[in-house]
Design a protein around this nucleic acid. Structure first.
Lengths: 109, 109
DNA sequence: CTTTTATTTCTATATTTCTCGAAATATGGA
DNA sequence: TCCATATTTCGAGAAATATAGAAATAAAAG
């Protein structure tokens, strides 16, 4: 991951509505939820939610697949893990042995 | 951790200069670096760096201690772990057993 | 007590981001 | 085809954030 991608992901999460949406999808991993249900649970206008989900998607933190009329969103745990890996890179100038296992387990479920 | 704190931390990291500073301090954990050296390495004007470090500090991601004329900054790995825990909370609606060990190891060094 | 070095606070401008109604697009069913 | 449902795209004003020079503060040394 490069700085630009990491900043995009962090900025995507650094906003109340998007953070709530992402966390909701993390709780519902790996199945995800349709956009309409997310909007309903978070009491967010559909257009606002849509904008926010597309920002999370561009950042690699969620993925979307159409299911009939609705679109199902899922948390992308590998995107999350890549972000964490970037933040922890060369942690303590130490050997990778210490931190790598932590990061690889973020995709635990 | 609450939403407000998490957003503060994420927003703090979602900016090129601050992300670079934080990652530099992660690499130099647990000893940290004096502000001047950070500014020099990142080629950032001291006033800009100072503003940025104070934003990271308020977000609980770095700590500062005076050492004579200079001020030493350190990455706060427990703040990092708290942020990760918040992002992964109730991951997959699953038992904590799966994800908790991952998070507690972020303070690996 | 004056000077030098290290860092912060203040301030103003420039830039970016957020929100959500209205209109547009996509899908499935009558 | 025509309609209802689900979601996205557009647009523009309001709000938040970034930057860095200049002035202020803190500490050490002469």
């Amino acid at each position: 991951m490069e700085s630009k991608n990491a900043i995009e992901a962090l900025a995507a999460l650094a906003q109340e509505g998007r953070l709530a949406a992402f966390r909701l999808l993390v709780k519902h991993a790996p199945d995800g939820l349709p956009a309409g249900e997310i909007a309903e649970r978070l009491e967010m206008p559909p257009s606002t939610l849509s904008t926010n989900l597309s920002i999370l998607a561009r950042a690699g933190l969620v993925s979307a697949t159409r299911e009939g009329r609705s679109i199902r969103y899922r948390a992308d745990m590998s995107g999350m893990a890549a972000l964490l890996a970037y933040l922890m890179e060369d942690c303590c100038g130490a050997s990778p042995a210490l931190c790598d296992p932590v990061i690889s387990k973020v995709t635990c479920c």
